[in-house]
Design a protein around this nucleic acid. Sequence first.
DNA 1: TGTATCATTGTATCTTTGTATGATTGTACA
DNA 2: TGTACAATCATACAAAGATACAATGATACA
Lengths: 133, 133
Amino acid sequence: MKISIDLRSDIPIYLQIVEQIRQQLTSGGLKPGDQLPTVRALASELRINFNTVSRAYRVLDQSGIISTQQGRGTYILETPPPEVVERLQLESLDALSRHYLRQTSRLGFSLEEAIKHLRQQAGKPDTGDQNFS
Amino acid sequence: MKISIDLRSDIPIYLQIVEQIRQQLTSGGLKPGDQLPTVRALASELRINFNTVSRAYRVLDQSGIISTQQGRGTYILETPPPEVVERLQLESLDALSRHYLRQTSRLGFSLEEAIKHLRQQAGKPDTGDQNFS
DNA sequence: TGTATCATTGTATCTTTGTATGATTGTACA
DNA sequence: TGTACAATCATACAAAGATACAATGATACA
């Protein structure tokens, strides 16, 4: 579980945590049944208050992604509702795109510069709508 | 932190604050990492409204001199020399792009889908995360 | 086994921090 | 005058932290 937060971001810490856990779930870094770090452990690692982690977990809990139980811990749900999984993909893409735009913008790059760079990185300087995995 | 304002000056209070903090930074009175007084503390000391202090801090924040974080406080930022900044910019863009490509790819989106999404996101100015509430 | 006790886990609530929005004030100028 | 604008203030809000608490688990011991 590697979660990193950016205190300078204009996205609240607890939402950064939410987004990263969602992404790790969709990207396979986290699997159903996995135990998440305890609120205190993650908070200590990130040097923030554990209530902030708790808040992030509560959001994920209410989204039906995890299950938190007082005195036991926090776990990825075994059977996340299918529509939740589906929505997760789009939500993750949203979060990724926002993050990318925010950061490149902060670095002083324009949208077009960023996109151009993306294409170069992808090794396909021009169009084509194929996957690039 | 000794800041003094002159109510009779024709310079706005918030700009007086901005100037004095800038000066204390160059004169070494303030160092990177230092915490500035809270908006309320400084406002109380100067007997002005805390929103005026907040406004000064916002100016400094947008200049990249300080970092204000809701619920945490306001801090002087580390400011690396310009040539380092320039190099870091490119490296950061590289890292950001690679990360974005890797993640969107994992989610099963094509490069063009991702870029299309980026443009859409750029259209709406950072709406924040509205997936739950 | 049962249970006392303590450690570990998440929760509730209040305080402290900065933010958003709109009203008020003062000043310049037509 | 009165209109326009910037600066400041008032109020309500949101994010993060501090503290005390409750639920669960682990361990020792009768």
